[in-house]
């Protein structure tokens, strides 16, 4: 058969594409459950990392089930949503931030308990300079003081904005508060470099050269935590 005819070329290409397409589709479908599980385990690791528990992927599920005693889902007004289709853990805040209108967004809250002390973990998503940023902020039992935080990003500049995923930046949030003396909501602001924020409970120093990403973190916290305020206040009142 003459290999240089158009018919042969089309025939060969056609068969090749079908074989390759079928192989890849089969591989992708059969590996999908394991890949999804990996993403879930990573999410558990990230949630636990915000309360300073670092575990391997292999132990993530057991540890998560042991310490996360409750999961709550809030709507945009800050009211608890009961019996929703997706559980709090399955809400993808990053995707939701991109695709859903503000009124349609859901806000999960993870309650962590160890040694009788509770911590409240809030997932959040926002915008950096180049792409999405996200993170988890854990609050002390008083629902006011930041216990720990973890942030991550997709495409921020290495060495600048990407530093938000480093502990030295995340540790700056520890001990900051989101309610002022009068009990009013006042988020933690990320201020532009070099300002002394040691006496200020509502501000942290940003990253030099990563101003837009730093501001993104501040904006993300301000906007997200605002939704949780009614819930936090309600719980504080109940505790009194």
């Amino acid at each position: 058969m003459d290999k240089n005819t158009n018919n042969y070329t089309f025939l060969f290409s056609g068969i090749l594409i079908i074989v390759v397409g079928a192989t890849l589709a089969f591989a992708a479908e059969s590996l999908k459950p394991m890949q999804k599980e990996n993403v879930r385990l990573e999410k558990m690791q990230n949630i636990l990392a915000s309360v300073k528990i670092n575990v391997d992927a292999t132990e993530a599920k057991a540890t998560f089930d042991q310490y996360i005693v409750d999961q709550v889902l809030l709507n945009n007004e800050g009211n608890v949503v009961e019996g929703s289709e997706v559980g709090p853990f399955d809400v993808d805040v990053v995707k939701q931030y991109k695709t859903e209108a503000v009124a349609d967004r859901f806000y999960p809250l993870f309650v962590f308990e160890k040694g009788g002390l509770r911590k409240y973990i809030v997932p959040m998503a926002g915008k950096g300079l180049w792409g999405p940023i996200w993170g988890y902020v854990a609050f002390e039992e008083d629902m006011n003081t930041v216990f720990g935080s973890t942030f991550d990003h997709k495409t921020e500049t290495p060495g600048l904005g990407a530093e938000i995923k480093e502990t030295w930046f995340q540790d700056r949030f520890i001990g900051k508060t989101i309610f002022n003396e009068g009990g009013e909501y006042m988020s933690v602001e990320v201020v532009k470099g070099g300002v002394d924020v040691s006496g200020n409970n509502h501000a942290v120093d940003g990253i030099s050269g990563g101003t837009i990403t730093s501001k993104g973190v501040g904006e993300m916290m301000e906007r997200t935590l605002n939704v949780y305020v009614p819930y936090f206040k309600g719980n504080m009142q109940a505790a009194l």
């Binding site: 042969y8 070329t9 060969f12 192989t23 992708a28 590996l31 990573e42």
Partner: peptide, 29 residues
Amino acid sequence: PSRVRIIVQLVIVAALVILVDQVLKAFLY
């Protein structure tokens, strides 16, 4: 067919690479 050989090679390499990528995502996340 020699006229489309580069594209054929590319398709083969790309398919193998995607396979590797999928396997890594499943087993060495």
